[in-house]
Amino acid sequence: MKTNILKSISLRRTKLFKAVTALISLIILTIRDASAQDGNAGINEATTQVKSYFDTGTNLMYAIGAIVGLVGAIKVFKKWNDGEHDTGKVASSWFGSCIFLVVVATVLKSFFGV
């Protein structure tokens, strides 16, 4: 009975040792392959992907600016028709946020040269 338990423990240790050895070998091979690759190629690929999305992103910012402008115009018109006195303040804040979005999109586009 005692020998069966010892054989079982020995078999488990052997399986565990083989599994750990295989895992360590896999990690070493992965690290070796990763360090052998050129890091510049990955950076250039990421740059290309970001540049391909940049025009779409700036167009999206222009569209959001247009929507903000329309919503602001409607809110200002409503306040003006209701006879509220702070119409100028509300108009300048909505107009300013719309201009901010357009300026940020334009500056980013010209800054990154896309």
Score class of each variant (00 low, 15 high):
S8Y: 05
T14K: 13
I9L: 10
N40P: 00
I24N: 02
K15A: 15
Q37L: 12
E45P: 04
T58P: 02
V20C: 07
L23T: 09
I27N: 09
T47Y: 11
E45A: 15
I27V: 14
D55I: 07
A66Q: 11
N4L: 12
K15M: 12
L6V: 12
G69D: 03
A46E: 02
N44A: 15
G65W: 00
T21M: 09
A22L: 13
T30N: 07
A34I: 13
A22T: 07
G69Q: 06
T3N: 08
S52M: 06
A22F: 11
K18H: 05
D38G: 03
R32F: 15
T48Q: 10
L11D: 08
I27E: 08
T56M: 04
G57A: 15
F54K: 06
N4A: 14
S25P: 02
A46R: 12
V20P: 01
A19I: 06
Q49S: 12
L16V: 04
L6C: 04
R13S: 10
K51P: 00
Q49Y: 10
A22H: 03
T3F: 04
S52V: 00
T30Q: 04
M61F: 05
K2L: 14
T30S: 15
G42A: 11
V50L: 07
N44F: 11
D33R: 12
I28W: 03
D33S: 15
G39E: 14
Y62Q: 10
I9Q: 00
D38Y: 04
I31L: 15
L60A: 11
Y62C: 00
I27P: 01
V20E: 11
I43M: 03
I31K: 13
K51G: 02
I64K: 05
V20G: 06
I24G: 05
G65C: 05
F54G: 07
A41W: 00
N40H: 09
G69L: 04
R13V: 15
T3H: 13
T14W: 07
G39Y: 13
A46P: 02
L29T: 01
